[in-house]
Design a protein around this nucleic acid. Structure first.
Lengths: 233, 233
DNA sequence: TTTTATAGTGTAATATTTACACAAAGTTAA
DNA sequence: TTAACTTTGTGTAAATATTACACTATAAAA
């Protein structure tokens, strides 16, 4: 047994894979999770986690499964990014990849890939190693999407804790967009959107005035029509 | 010969198809091009043009090729929409489809599907027949994308002639967005973007004051950073 | 109790968006 | 040839949104 080629078709078919760009945010830096490949091709290179899609699952189910298998992450924000189908993108033959991107909350950031054999590691997006396959192109598409998406959809919350301060939120926006925002204007704007709930709880153990915590009001957002554009300073 | 199953793999593989939602604009109506299926499954149902992706072409190349084969269209605006991979979306088995959408200029609108055996027909998006496969879901994604994209990228020009009047452009936006726009404000805004070139040519044979023609200044657009949002009246 | 660090707040100036109406220019019909 | 019809093309004032900007409040640490 072993390598029998027992699935036969009238015409050649590509293999179907899925990959996932996992964004995390920590210490004011935007990061992505990479896996050091254990096998050829690109053995010992870094790559986005991913793998083959099973015949009885959708590409999204495959992405969610691979994400769990390779990192232990569950219940994360995940969204289809793009499908890459260049003929020579994989030296093993014709392989197309339906690529997703995921946003990981800070509370789960450290829990990532606690167990596994594969080496998983967070990299600051400014200090990425050389990547396997066409993953550099994939990354470019992903970061561009994240930057544009955060301007009109409140996905930033997916990268913070359940509770966050307005300063944390502002810093996240500043990091992703790569621009400075005015504190008063940022607060005015984000609060006027009416999608934040101010909690009855402050920071503790900080060597300065404690900030109030907020949480994202998903229900109010879902019922409102469209998030408006956050404009830079 | 004929139906030999000579392409064999270690694991089962899905078939890869591509489909294309072709938008056209005529007489103030937004339309899509549908093909009446000649074969099972869904024989005699209407569907978006598409077909199997060859093993030596990208999904986009496949979409462009199918578009040409089924409609005669060439050199149209085309962009990846989404990949659909539901396990049961095709009764023939596991088939995933990388779907594109295309915008067809008015000047080419009538030339569509001049020759072929398959029946191709434009349908107003408000009067679509029942569609094959999961094409109704695909249509929903496509129309949503078109509406949101036109607000921040000048893709509307792809649906008009090379030369158009500002009133035509305004009506196109009104049709796609489903809202009325103020003439003076629309003109002010679109002209301030500095992506239109006023031609030295007017309408002829109209029973009223002739409007000036404009064309889209692609070079100026490409070199500018980002198209700003067109806001409704 | 002083220092340090960050939170939290208002206003005036500027820019953008909105609402709104009529004269000009062709064509058609009387 | 004139009048009626139809659509083009234009400006301004009011309302709204965005921007720039600085100091007091609070908690912990020194």
């Amino acid at each position: 047994m072993g390598k029998e080629k027992k699935y036969c078709y009238e015409y050649p078919r590509p293999a179907l894979t899925t990959d996932c760009i996992i964004f995390g945010y920590d210490f004011g830096e935007l990061k992505v999770l990479l896996i050091e490949r254990a096998h050829e091709p690109f053995r010992a290179s870094w790559a986005f986690p991913g793998g083959f899609v099973n015949i009885d699952e959708t590409s999204e189910e495959g992405a969610v499964r691979e994400l769990y298998e390779e990192t232990g992450l569950q219940n994360v924000f995940i969204e289809q990014l793009y499908t890459f189908s260049d003929v020579d993108r994989d030296p093993r033959g014709r392989v197309i990849s339906v690529v997703y991107y995921a946003l990981v909350k800070q509370s789960e950031y450290k829990a990532v890939a606690g167990d596994d054999a594969a080496k998983a590691k967070w990299f600051s997006i400014n200090k990425l190693p050389k990547l396997a396959f066409d993953h550099e192109m994939i990354f470019d598409v992903a970061i561009k999407r994240l930057k544009s998406k955060i301007k009109y959809q409140p996905i930033g919350f997916e990268l913070l804790n359940e509770k966050f301060t307005l300063t944390e939120l502002q810093q996240l926006y500043e990091t992703i967009l790569g621009i400075d925002l005015d504190k008063r204007n940022f607060r005015k704007k984000i609060l006027s959107m009416d999608i934040l709930i101010k909690l009855d709880e402050k920071q503790t153990n900080v060597a300065h005035k404690a900030a109030w915590f907020y949480k994202f009001d998903k229900e109010k957002y879902d019922s409102s029509s469209l998030f408006t554009l956050l404009t830079p300073k």
